[in-house]
């Protein structure tokens, strides 16, 4: 994964598969620490599965016996002097949090969160994206978007392109493109 935003996309896909109706993505960069948190209200994991979910040879998919999503995210964080923690409860949801030392030489760039969010847009579930830097804070909530859309699908290509460009502009305005 070349960007943290790609890891985020990958981890959020797990929340989508867990049947979550609300997924939050929070990126905070302050005091040389970059924190990325992905939380959902999906099906969660039981203790036994949670204990081995960071093992690449654990997966829910049926086409292969390896699952690299969480292990790759953990590796990216640990390479950059940080770490990954996971809180989950069966039937309640899962929260994955990774931290990175922001100026660590091996930290991947944050990347394009606009593209990550536009890829995820869905009529079935909602997302709240929060990006906070020392220059400011940007919050994007798909529930606000859907209210404005008044029944038009968020997956209409024209809407997807608009949302992507809007998120990019707003994140750039608070220096998120430099992370």
């Amino acid at each position: 994964m070349r960007e943290i935003a790609l890891n985020i996309l990958d981890i959020v896909e797990n929340s989508v598969k867990a049947g979550a109706s609300l997924i939050t993505v929070t990126v905070v960069c302050k005091d040389n620490l970059l924190g990325v948190e992905i939380g959902d209200n999906g099906c969660g994991m039981d203790e036994e599965f949670a204990a081995r979910v960071l093992d690449p040879f654990t997966t829910t998919r049926t086409t292969r016996k390896v699952g690299m999503g969480l292990p790759l995210f953990k590796m990216a964080a640990e390479m950059a002097g940080g770490g990954l923690s996971l809180v989950t409860k069966k039937g309640v949801g899962t929260t994955v949090k990774a931290t990175f030392v922001a100026d660590h030489i091996d930290r991947a760039p944050l990347g394009d969160l606009g593209e990550t969010m536009s890829t995820l847009l869905d009529d079935e579930r909602d997302f709240v994206l929060t990006v906070e830097t020392e220059k400011g804070k940007y919050v994007f909530d798909t529930r606000d978007l859907k209210r404005e859309l008044d029944g038009i699908s968020v997956t209409e290509p024209e809407i997807t392109v608009f949302v992507r460009d809007m998120i990019r502009e707003n994140i750039n305005a608070i220096g998120g493109n430099l992370l």
Binding site: L9, D10, T116, T119, P157
Partner: peptide, 26 residues
């Protein structure tokens, strides 16, 4: 758009397809 696809570059492909469909007004 699983881990394998994402790491191989599926996200820019997805976004290019969406761009083209929107631009050509398909």
């Amino acid at each position: 758009m699983a881990t394998c696809g994402i790491s191989a570059g599926a996200r820019p492909v997805f976004n290019t397809l969406v761009d083209e469909v929107a631009q050509r007004n398909l």
